[in-house]
Design a binder for these strands. Sequence first.
DNA 1: TATTGTTATACTCTATAACTATA
DNA 2: TATAGTTATAGAGTATAACAATA
Lengths: 155, 155
Amino acid sequence: MSDPDRTLRRFAGYSMKRAFNVIQTDVNEALASLGLRMVTFSALSVIVDNPGLRQSQLADILSIERPNLVLIIDDLESRDLIMRQRASDDRRAYALQATLAGRRLHDRALKAVGGHEARVMAGLTEQERLALIDMLMRIEATGRSEDAGRQVSGA
Amino acid sequence: MSDPDRTLRRFAGYSMKRAFNVIQTDVNEALASLGLRMVTFSALSVIVDNPGLRQSQLADILSIERPNLVLIIDDLESRDLIMRQRASDDRRAYALQATLAGRRLHDRALKAVGGHEARVMAGLTEQERLALIDMLMRIEATGRSEDAGRQVSGA
DNA sequence: TATTGTTATACTCTATAACTATA
DNA sequence: TATAGTTATAGAGTATAACAATA
């Protein structure tokens, strides 16, 4: 029996699931020593880059449900990597701010994730890696526009 | 605030997670009317293509833990899509066989997944789609060889 | 009334230990 | 003693409903 999953290999989605498993395992190993997971690193990164962000905005950016983001923010705040500051113009909301420690950990995490990316993409040229990112973003955009179209036509 | 996740977008892994979410949602919608999920379709497909396969072999092929495969096989068997036949040469093992109904459902599922693939890959040329599959398989292979190397050096 | 963040909850996916029956 | 399949279970990840405080 050669190539037992040859039928499935005709679909990009099948190979993407398997490639993403490799990536997820490797990036979580790269971040573990910093006390971060893929999702907590992503949240920290967006907060560092966008000071004053609201939790609901961050949830939208990362496509995470608001209830699930609460625990992620709790985790980062309990380790003094970020702060929840009550927004002056809307006392329901928090303005999220990275602390100095948070920015420093983010710098270290960026290097760790950069090393991970170099490792798992070692079989690709830099040109191929950039083409891959571009194709992935087009796939994501196609899905988003289909969702939007479905909501419009369904309304 | 423009491009709030621009730092993360430099990593292929981040865009792959988001693209894969789109793919997973769409393929599961495409298979739902057939009573299949991504993983049950994958298992059915490998069984159809490889009659007589053992459960442990199928688990290896799909990179699923053996305990998790049991429920998937239970599901397919309870709907008479596959059969567990005791292996004549090893009474601990099962030889998995697709039934006629299983092969017929697999034909319909292949068409549904083909339609899904065409939909989510609409923003890519066929050449790009094939290049994407090739790159994903190289990423997966890099990860597998690193795992093997780690086990060797760790042994 | 609607929105922000929160709590509680449930469902899926995945991973591990330990069992049984065979080998 | 080891292996095939199974059971039980626990941990992530993800999704929805409903609540308090505020708009």
